[in-house]
Structure formats: structure tokens, C-alpha cells
Write a protein that binds this DNA or RNA. Structure first.
Length: 842
RNA sequence: GCCGAAGUGGCGGAACUGGCAGACGCGCCGGACUCAAAAUCCGGUUCCCGAAAGGGAGUGUGGGUUCGAUUCCCACCUUCGGCACCA
């Protein structure tokens, strides 16, 4: 055979060589084409979005604002970011191509513990490490090909940005919404700083996992508790937030309806108010408990035989961590004093016990052991009376434990004049009776505490306050902002702010009286920086104000916010609070920052959360180098529903790679086919044309309405499979172009390249109108009707779509298989669902 | 303990309004191409019985509603998430 002879130069051999050269040239090479298109987009500022002109502001355009939570520059991007920003990218591309003006910016949450800890670990200055990380992340974002408006890039650590964070803080301060006070706070011994309640998870530091300690310190707070009701009620203004996030916020705010009831100390007459959700059980109060931190404890026991024991108990409590305090058995000490129950004048013993928390309610409780499990356990341990006042006498609360059920038929017993009332009626009646005597009133308690915003750390936004001995807390005048974070050598945390060491910076003069004064040395929590960044994006270079209200009101509220669930009660609560305050300050016209929220699921590797310590962090760049960004982008979305947790599997990536190669080949085959053979442009109305239209409809609907990002990919794969099965179909060119067009939001580089190959007309896919399905071609021409006998599938029949009932029945009854199963039985009932199924009941 | 979400092949998952369970992909099996391998292509792949035709079972478990249930209702089990000494 000639082919076995290497020097043979037959025509066949030449042709073979030519094909091989061709195939080499046409090989899908993501690195080259991705670099090519990324350069075009960067050079032409393809995704820059100008702010509206004054005329446009008036004529409300079809605009949309898409924001993904900005990254902490504490290292490189990980797969979670890739997922997050690819979701945003798909939405951005689709909306752009539907003709909307889409704002889609990006920034860096550069201040704060995540970035600072990363820097300390490296032993370098936080600014150096942070800015290097930012440069690296920016590069990676470009490499992923995300359609970001880079003209609006911001970083929260830049003076141009944090000047306005300080400016906003001062507006809060002026309104009394930022204040400084001594309070019990949570202290992280590892990070050497206080934490907000929201940053304590199961008694541990949210960032480093160390058990937090209780301390009493003077700290800065935002009065978020004033907004507890607004934060709950204005959830109604949100268009679409996941229920779980709303539930978490509701739990966190923890609104409870009840009563404030005033007990008095026997002898002194001092008032001891309590908060209770069960005023109906007031007659069952058999003891009284103060939190160890309660301010009256020391005076109550002063000079008594109980003093030493009580004070010792208070000291021991203070030494315990939150976790210890919760895990140990309930204990307490008797103070020797008694409290008078306002409903019946009964004197009940006052105890001090650490199961009562100073931070909730009034730090004091009336204990009703018959109807509260904790009080019950305590009463049993110390032999205190357990007196039932609600419910049937069939339940022995002393034996069976606290009776805490809340059924409607509960009735008050042993409750004086109130006996016989239902539990809800009893609540109302007893509260009213107390109110009449000035001894109580309806009250609401919240679990939410004020937001502790100061941090004893270097890498944060300086709090723009000056402490003057004469004038007190004096705001830095607006025209002296920003208060620039000083350069210092020793930024390592050591329990007080490292800024305190910068004596030249700390020592200043009072803006009010001109006397010598000292600067506040604490910095702000990172979450302050990120509570308003999404508005700064709209006007990122403004040096007169944080943003222009008209422009902000044009873009916001954010139409689609995308990010992880971990911020459900952190960033998302704080940003809502900030927006409400900014609204009341007249800075913005809206009350809620994010109309719609999408939470992407967590990405795991080998079933475990990715973490550096476990060594299972998946680095997207590694796969981008191997397969290209398009494959990685597609795969992160193909894994499963984007709002559920997903496990990363390397092998799945191969499937996407094969798909893109298949698409590549199909498109090139189309391009190489002479146009004459394609029956000109008309795709006709055959099955492939119809399948194409159905794919358009499904992809569009899944992305826009359902927020399903994985099923559109499957749908395009199906279409490509169909194209390969019917290479001679007149619609094959139309189907191929559509497949390329529909996959563009996911894989913009390869789609752009193939679009160029197919159209050869120089049009740009990213600017090409999103395809629209022809409703007339959505239905299949011929349907498969299922025939069941007694609900069991017995036959399938192909009929024209829209076949009438009678005609359909006749066709079905003609089926031998159906007849075999009917087998002469009497048909009792026939169900016909046109174009779907026929079911005979025999 | 309270609140919420979820349980579907070997794996990730699909089935949106009660109407063909398992789309799409991975993996696996068989075949083509190749000296060979890779790549690619074709076919198969829920389980059981059967050579096949075909039959039976099947969406965590048990019940219910319905001609018909992954989908609706009740109870339970499991997993995950949130809250939790919050009075």
C-alpha cells in the first residue's frame, strides 16, 4: 500500500497532510483566543457604562444594576469567587444583550481583619500585602473575562474612599446614631480586638475561631437597635430575597412581645424591672434572679453575711468564657434579700445567677419554675417552690418538668382574680391591671444589640473624632477629612490600637477650643466600609460628596445583588441599616439597598469546606491554564443549582472541555460548508428549527425568571447534540449560530470567536441582540402521546400536535398493545390530556 | 429545644402547573479509527426476571387524596443550615 511507503506522494497523501494541517490550525486553543478578546474588550472599554446625562436622568431608561459582593483582598481568588462573579457575568451579558443599560462594577473590601491578618502572617505591611493582592485579583478577574466596568473600580482602603466613610460616620454621630459608651463587649484574645455580636458564632470569633471573652470597655456603637422595627417591617419592600436570609435576620433581631413588670426590693423599695413574655404566669413567680453584672448586686448585699459569697460568684462568672458559661450546669447564690411581686405583694428571694444575661431585657427576671425550663432546673437544684399557674391540673409540674405548652385552651389557675382566664387573655388582663397601678406596661424586647464598630486594630478606617478634655468628643471638621491612617512600623495587634503609638498623629488640637487634644485611635469595623460601597460605585470619583444623590437614585436600589449566605446577618443587615439612615439624612431616596438578592451555594472539595488548613482549596487559575477561562466558567455553573452547595469534581471539567471542542468543530464545519448547500438562509420549520426555538425559550426563561444557570447549559448541549445528528437539516446553520449565541454569557471568548467564524461579517456577539424565540415554532409538530391502562404505561403513539380528542382516542384504541391490555375488560373511565396522554381505567 | 431547607441511578443533577422518572454531564461497558496510544466518533448504561419480545419494582420510610403523585396532605427517619440560658 502506498500509505505504508513514506516517500509516496500520492494525491491522497497530500490531501491527508492538508487536512492534518487544517485540523491543527483549527484546534480550539483557549489561551490564544481568550487573550485576543480580552484585549479587544480592554482596549475598547467594551463594558464601560457612563452615568446618565441630565436628560437621561429625566427620561428613565431601561437600566439595571447588578452587584456582586466585593472580595476581601486577603489572597487570590478562589472557586467561590469564580462562581459568584460568573453568575453576575451571565446576568450582565443577557441583560446587556436584551438592550438594557447594565451597571456592573467591582471593588475591593481592603480594610479589616481578613486582609490585615493575611499581612501579619506574611510579616509585611498590610498596605503592601493588600495592594499586591488587589493587583493579583484584578489580573485574575481580567483573565476570567468578566464584563466589568473597570472605570468604577474602588478600594475601601484608599483615602479617596474612606474620606467618605468618615464623612458618613460624622453624619451618624451628629444624629446620635454613633455613640461611645462603656458596655459589656466580646473580646477576641487572638485578634486582640473587640467584636460585634454578629461576628461571634457559637461563642467564638467568626474569623479565627478563638473563644471570645467578656469585657467591659468603652467602645463606639451604631444605634442599629433604633432600626429594629424598620429592619423587620421594611422586609416588605424587598422584591425577592431568599426566605432563609429573611428568617435569619428575623431570628437575629429577635423581636419578642411581652411586658415590663416592676418588682421592688423589700426594705429599700428600690425598683427592679423585668421583661417577660409571660405576664400571665406572674402568680407563679417563686424567686427572682439578677444577672451577675447587674448594677444593683453589690449594693444589695453590701455589709450582709451573703456579701462575700455573692461577690465571689460574680468574680468567677466574669472569669468564664461565653462558651463555659453556657455549657456548665445552672447555678447561683442567694443574696439574702427579697423582691415584692406587684400582683400579690408576695416577697420572693432574690438570687444572682449567670443564666440571666445582662444584655437582654433588663438583666433581671422573675423566675416561674412551673412554666420555664431553665427556672425549673434552677428551682429543683436549690429546692425552691414550683407553683403551677397555667394549664390543667392533670400535669404535675413538680414531677414532669416545666409546663411550657402554648395551646389555646390553657387556663390560668392559682392566679387570684385572674384564675379561669385563658392564657392569652390573662396576659392582657394582668398587664392592664399592672399598668393601671403604674407597676408595668406592654413592652417589646429585641435580641439585636447595637453594632459595636470600633476595633483595636491598625488596618482600618480611622474614626474621625478628637478627644478634648474640655469639649469631650469633637468631630473632625468635614474640610479636614480624610483623617489619614498614619504610617507606623509596629502594626501588630496588642490589645490597644496600634495607632496609639503614633504620638505625632495622636497629639492634635481641639477643633472647637483650640486646646491640646488627642485623636481617637480605634479604627472602624470592615463592615462599615462595605455598608455603602454599592452606592459609591455609581459616582466613584466624586470629591465633593460620597455620591451624587440623583445618580444614586437613578441606579439604586440594586436590581440584583449576588453573594454568599455567610453575610446574612452581617453585611446584609448593616447595609440595610446604613441605607435607612442615609435615606433619613436625605442622601438617598430609597429605603432598601438591594431589591433582589441571590445567595450562591458554598463550593466544597471532597465534601469538605475549602480551607487552607485542610489543603483542599481549588485554585481557579490552575484550571484556567489547563482548559481556559471559558471551560472553568461554564463548569462552575454546570455543577448544579447555583444556590445550593456544590462539590468540585475535576473530572466534570473534562465534560465541559469536550463540549466546547464539539461546539468548536460543529461551528467550523458549518463555516466550511458552502453557503449554497445551506438552502440559503431559511431554516424552515422542521424539528431542528423548532428545537432551536425551544432552546432559546428555555435558556432565557431559566436565567431570567428561575435563576437556574445549570439547565441552560444542558439545553445548549442538547441542541448541539441534535445539530450533530442532523448535519443536513436546513436549520443547521441557524441552530449552530443560536447555540453559540446562547452560550456567550457563559463562555464569551469562544462564543465570540465562533461567531466571527460563522458570520464572517465582523459583527460582535457581545453587542448582538439576545435571540428571541418565535412562539409559533415553540411547539413540536408531532407529539408522542402516552397511553396508560390503569395508570401503567402501555404504549406510545406519534400524532400531529393538536390532534382532537375523538381522533386521538380512535388512534389509541387501534393500538394492538393497548387492546391486549384492555383484553375485553369494560372501560370504566377514560382520561384524555390532549398532546400528552390517554389513560383507560378498567 | 425552636425555625428553615433538602433526601431521585455508581456520581453531579433534570423533571417549573399532579400526566413518559432519570434530560444534560461524569463514570463505566462494548465497538469504530490507529502498528499502538491519546484524541475523536458510534452504541449501551435505574434495579430484578428474560436470549429477545416482554414483564415486574422503583424518587428516604409508612400511610392518605387521585384515573394518575418525585410533585399535594399526614406521620416518621436522616442530613444540612440558622437561632438558642433571649426570660
Amino acid at each position: 500500500m502506498p500509505r505504508r511507503f513514506p516517500l509516496s506522494l500520492s494525491i491522497e497523501r497530500l490531501f491527508h497532510w492538508w487536512r492534518r494541517i487544517q485540523s491543527v490550525m483549527e484546534k480550539y486553543d483557549p489561551q490564544t483566543i481568550e487573550a485576543k478578546w480580552q484585549k479587544v474588550w480592554a482596549d475598547e472599554l467594551s463594558f464601560h457604562v457612563p452615568n446618565p446625562s441630565p436628560e437621561e436622568l429625566a427620561a428613565h431608561r431601561d437600566r439595571t444594576y447588578v452587584v456582586e459582593m466585593l472580595p476581601y483582598p486577603s489572597g487570590d481568588l478562589h472557586m467561590g469567587h469564580t462562581l459568584n462573579y460568573t453568575i453576575g457575568d451571565v446576568i450582565t451579558h443577557v441583560r446587556r444583550r436584551k438592550g438594557m443599560q447594565v451597571l456592573r462594577p467591582m471593588g475591593y473590601d481592603a480594610f479589616g481583619l481578613p486582609a490585615e491578618n493575611a499581612a501579619i502572617k506574611e510579616g509585611a505591611h498590610p498596605r503592601v500585602v493588600t495592594e499586591r493582592n488587589i493587583a493579583s485579583i484584578r489580573k485574575q478577574m481580567h483573565r476570567m473575562g468578566w464584563a466589568i466596568d473597570w472605570g468604577r473600580e474602588i478600594s475601601t482602603h484608599q483615602p479617596e474612599y474612606y474620606r467618605w466613610t468618615q464623612w458618613l460616620f460624622l453624619r451618624f454621630f451628629e444624629r446620635g446614631l454613633a455613640y461611645r459608651k462603656e458596655a459589656p463587649v466580646k473580646w477576641c484574645p487572638n485578634d486582640q480586638t473587640v467584636l460585634a455580636n454578629e461576628q461571634v458564632v457559637d461563642g467564638r470569633c467568626e474569623r479565627c475561631g478563638a473563644e471570645v471573652e467578656a469585657k467591659s470597655l468603652t467602645q463606639w456603637f451604631f444605634r442599629i437597635t433604633d432600626y429594629a422595627d424598620a429592619l423587620l417591617d421594611e422586609m416588605d419592600l424587598l422584591e425577592d430575597w431568599p426566605d432563609r436570609v429573611l428568617t435569619m435576620q428575623r431570628n437575629w433581631i429577635g423581636r419578642s412581645q411581652g411586658a415590663r413588670v416592676v418588682f421592688r426590693v423589700e426594705g429599700s423599695g428600690e425598683q427592679l424591672p423585668v421583661f417577660t413574655t409571660r405576664p400571665d404566669t406572674l402568680f407563679g413567680a417563686t424567686f427572682f434572679v439578677l444577672a451577675p453584672e447587674h448594677s444593683l448586686v453589690s449594693s444589695l448585699v453590701a455589709g450582709s453575711e451573703h456579701e462575700a459569697e455573692v461577690l465571689d460568684y460574680v468574680r468567677r462568672t466574669a472569669a468564664r468564657s461565653e462558651v463555659e458559661r453556657e455549657e456548665k450546669e445552672k447555678d447561683g447564690v442567694f443574696t439574702g434579700r427579697f423582691a415584692v411581686n406587684p400582683v400579690n405583694g408576695e416577697a420572693i428571694p432574690i438570687w444572682v445567677a449567670d443564666y440571666v444575661l445582662m444584655g437582654y431585657g433588663t438583666g433581671a427576671i422573675m423566675a416561674v419554675p412551673a412554666h420555664d425550663e431553665r427556672d425549673h432546673a434552677f428551682a429543683e437544684r436549690y429546692g425552691i417552690e414550683i407553683r403551677q399557674v397555667v394549664g390543667s391540673s392533670a400535669v404535675d409540674v413538680a414531677e414532669a418538668g416545666a409546663f411550657v405548652s402554648h395551646s389555646a385552651d390553657e387556663v390560668l389557675v392559682n392566679s387570684g382574680d385572674f384564675s379561669g382566664l385563658s392564657s392569652p387573655d390573662g396576659k392582657v388582663a394582668i398587664t392592664a391591671s399592672l399598668a393601671a397601678e403604674g407597676l408595668g406596661e406592654e413592652a417589646i424586647a429585641y435580641r439585636l444589640r447595637d453594632w459595636l464598630l470600633s476595633r483595636q486594630r491598625y488596618w482600618g478606617c480611622p474614626i474621625p473624632i478628637i478627644h478634648c478634655e474640655k469639649c469631650g468628643e469633637v468631630p473632625v471638621p468635614d474640610d479636614q477629612l480624610p483623617v489619614v491612617l498614619p504610617e507606623i512600623d509596629d502594626y501588630v495587634p496588642k490589645g490597644r490600637s496600634p495607632l496609639a503609638a503614633a504620638e505625632d498623629w495622636v497629639a492634635t488640637t481641639c477643633p472647637k477650643c483650640g486646646g491640646s487634644a488627642r485623636r481617637e485611635t480605634d479604627t472602624m469595623d470592615t463592615f462599615v466600609d462595605s455598608s455603602w460601597y454599592f452606592i459609591r460605585y455609581t459616582d466613584p470619583h466624586d470629591d465633593r460628596l460620597p455620591f451624587d444623590r440623583e445618580i444614586a437614585d437613578y441606579w439604586l436600589p440594586v436590581n440584583q445583588y449576588i453573594g454568599g449566605i455567610e453575610h446574612a446577618v452581617l453585611h446584609l443587615l448593616y447595609a440595610r441599616f446604613f441605607t435607612k439612615v442615609m435615606n433619613e439624612l436625605g442622601l438617598v431616596g430609597f429605603r432598601e439597598p438591594f431589591a433582589r438578592l441571590f445567595n450562591q451555594g458554598m463550593l466544597t472539595a471532597g465534601g469538605a469546606k475549602m480551607s487552607k488548613s485542610k489543603g483542599n482549596v481549588i485554585n481557579p487559575l490552575e484550571f484556567v491554564e489547563r482548559y481556559g477561562a471559558d471551560t472553568v466558567r461554564l463548569y462552575t455553573l454546570f455543577m448544579g443549582p447555583a444556590d445550593e452547595d456544590m462539590d468540585w469534581q475535576d473530572t466534570g471539567l473534562e465534560g465541559i472541555w469536550r463540549f466546547l471542542n464539539r461546539l468548536w468543530r460543529v461551528a467550523h464545519e458549518q463555516a466550511a460548508t458552502p453557503v449554497a448547500k445551506l438552502a440559503e438562509a431559511d431554516p424552515g420549520d422542521g424539528e431542528l428549527a423548532r428545537k432551536t426555538h425551544r432552546t432559546i425559550a428555555k435558556v432565557t426563561d431559566d436565567i431570567e425568571r428561575r435563576f437556574y444557570f445549570h439547565t441552560p447549559i444542558a439545553a445548549v448541549m442538547e441542541l448541539v447534540n441534535e445539530i450533530q445528528r442532523h448535519p443536513e437539516d436546513p436549520a443547521v446553520r441557524f441552530a449552530t449560530e443560536t447555540a453559540v449565541s446562547l452560550i456567550q454569557p457563559y463562555a464569551p471568548h469562544v462564543a465570540e470567536e465562533l461567531w466571527g467564524v460563522l458570520s464572517a461579517g465582523g459583527t460582535r456577539l457581545w453587542e448582538t441582540r439576545w435571540p428571541e424565540a418565535d412562539p409559533a415554532l415553540l411547539a413540536v409538530a408531532e407529539v408522542e402521546v402516552v397511553v396508560q391502562v390503569n395508570g401503567k404505561l402501555r404504549d406510545r403513539l406519534h400524532v400531529a400536535a393538536g390532534t382532537g380528542k375523538d381522533e386521538l382516542l380512535a388512534a389509541v384504541l387501534a393500538s394492538e398493545r393497548v387492546q391486549a391490555h384492555l383484553d375485553g375488560h369494560e372501560i370504566r373511565k377514560t382520561i384524555v390530556v390532549p398532546d400528552r396522554l390517554v389513560n383507560f381505567v378498567v
